Amino acid sequence: MVGQFDFIQSYRDLDPDASREIIDARQKSHDKIQGTVKSMLRVFDLCKIAFLLEAPSEAEWFEKPIRDLDPHFLLKKDKAEAGKLAALLLRERLTWTGGVSNIAVLTTSFCGRRHSADADALTMDANDALSTAVRLHRTLQGGKPIVAPKFKSAATEIANVAASNPVPGEIVRQAIEAVLASTEAAAKSLAEATEASQAPARADIVRLAEEVDMLWWHIGDWHELLEKPRSDANRETKILASGIELGTLVRQVPGPYGAYGLLRRIAASDADAKTSLRAAVTAVSQVDAGKLARNISPSSASLVPVHTALQALARTGTEWDKDAGDAVSDVADMEISFYELGLQAYRERILIDQGSLD
């Protein structure tokens, strides 16, 4: 379970021999950089740096705050140190915002096969945070009761009207304005109370709709993207397409808890059987790859290996063209179970759709 983030302790865990001056400088840089991470694009860049992948081409926002206090630091030269700092930035974010950031970390980790620069503490934190969020996601939030608003008293203004004979126009105007103001404030209060009550209920409805859609999708034995029965697909195509299609049904992150069970059920006896990304994608036809793939920019390719490989197959007819091969070559032949492969495809599709990754 992710708790409150302590930069000093976390940094010392990674570098016990670091001097106080270095720790102080790193913390100041950390705080300055964190304040600039206001888009998912920068979260994606932090993922690349944290997992020691190719550094983003435009990363002055990350490098400059560190160089201001340590002129010798260079992102392309000090990859391990940069990776530690990026991992700490992401780990702090996980303590106060989860959702897509958790998904981004886990997809980049390729089900834990890639290692983050902080000895995988980042991956473990993201996995714990997402597991907790997924379980909490199934808890009904319910709606708060709507309480009738109180109207502000206009007694003083009304008393002035009663005491005046004949009634001056200004006193009447003040009384009417006071009543109108009270009515407007009460109506606004009622609208806000109604919205506060309905928002959790809407979230519950969306979550339940996700689960119902996934259930009917599973019962239907039909690949909507491939336009053929799931039972007609080979096991590699089936698990990849299932993960991707389930990902398209997610409307709010982190997605229904039941999706994990469905993926394991679809994999059936092959759930724990071993394969690799290269072997699995090789078994998919070029036509099917074209239906499953999304357009991923080269800069994002390493974050979503499954979709990158499928896109390459759809484009060239071979599972690895040069661009795709360079982006995912580090994980292409790593042993992975069929269930994990489906889970990776599922999370990648959520990241693409909900995190606006292209």
Rank of each mutant, 00 (worst) to 15 (best):
A86M: 03
C47P: 02
A148G: 12
A129F: 00
L52G: 05
L69V: 11
S116D: 14
G83P: 05
I66Q: 09
M40L: 07
S57R: 12
V100E: 13
S57K: 12
V134R: 15
L122C: 08
R138W: 04
K84Q: 07
E58G: 13
F110P: 04
T123C: 06
A86F: 01
D128Q: 11
E58K: 09
F62D: 15
D78G: 05
Q34W: 13
H115M: 06
P65L: 02
D125K: 00
P145K: 01
A129T: 02
G98D: 00
E92L: 02
A59W: 01
L94I: 05
V147K: 04
D128L: 03
Q34C: 07
V134H: 14
A148S: 14
P149K: 03
V134E: 04
L94C: 07
A55G: 05
L69K: 11
K152Y: 15
F44R: 07
R93I: 09
P65N: 03
W61T: 01
L46M: 11
S101M: 14
R135N: 09
D125M: 05
F44N: 09
I146C: 08
V134I: 09
A119L: 06
E81I: 00
A59P: 05
H115Q: 14
L136Q: 13
L85M: 10
Q141M: 07
K38E: 10
A50Q: 10
S29V: 04
E81F: 05
K79V: 01
S109T: 07
K64S: 04
K64V: 02
M124S: 12
A87W: 12
T108Q: 11
L106H: 03
T108D: 15
K28A: 14
V37G: 08
I33S: 02
E54C: 03
L89E: 15
A133S: 08
S109N: 08
A117F: 12
F151L: 15
I49G: 09
K76W: 06
K144M: 10
M124T: 13
A133E: 04
H137N: 05
A148R: 13
A87N: 10
